[in-house]
Design a protein around this nucleic acid. Structure first.
Lengths: 110, 110
DNA sequence: GTATTCTATCGTAATATTGCAATATAAACA
DNA sequence: TGTTTATATTGCAATATTACGATAGAATAC
């Protein structure tokens, strides 16, 4: 035990959980927020801004990328990381969808 | 090492990450989705629906509750768990806020 | 009272995550 | 070619998470 029993849940539930989990760390929230406000988005900037070592930042970027939340394109020696709009939009509509259903239900049970 | 360096991030970043992290597991996504569609929301129902043991489900419910995503009220022997609308709305607006800002920026850098 | 039912907690094993130093890789430039 | 610069990978230690059996607690039924 210790491993998540992904095989017992639906693909949708698993894929939403993976995307959400990727943002479940303050460093990765900070990265997204930095990418959002930065005009240029080079990894080196992020290392300078975050209070974490370069390998650790690189690892967080890797996780965000593998979850599909950011994209990275090689730009000479540096790498340009950017937010994947579609992924964020998907998460947004997932939560607003729940809110809408709750309103319709009137959430009366409690 | 091994522990998240929360002290280096802002309160906002940490609190968002905690809420998001609570949903970063398919079982907890499944619980929210079940609470959403169920008319009654008793913990026992959830144990019957999920492919996990009663202690494990109880633990997941505890995490969702401590993250503020659900509320629980005692109802005789059973406990009535419900989604906290405000928390879900907060998450929804967090993501749609990012989307809006991305549109304004035109996300032109990559 | 005892029995039953529902949920929480404890204890513990398996696994995952976080973080960094050291090192590797890869492109640009001298 | 050798050096610098930027990022990735490896290896490892510390900590967190996931899961469940056993057990405890708390309310209801008898």
């Amino acid at each position: 035990m210790g491993a998540t029993k992904t095989e017992h849940f639906t693909d949708k539930q698993n894929s939403i959980a993976v995307m959400i989990k990727a943002l479940g760390h303050p460093a990765r929230v900070a990265i997204i927020e930095y990418l959002l406000k930065a005009n240029k988005c080079i990894c080196g900037d992020i290392v300078n801004v975050l209070p974490l070592s370069q390998p650790t930042v690189s690892q967080h970027l890797k996780e965000l990328k593998s979850a599909g939340l950011i994209k990275g394109s090689v730009e000479g020696t540096a790498i340009c990381y950017c937010i994947d709009e579609k992924a964020i939009a998907k998460l947004g509509s997932y939560f607003t969808g729940i809110s809408t259903k709750l309103e319709k239900k009137n959430n009366a049970c409690c």
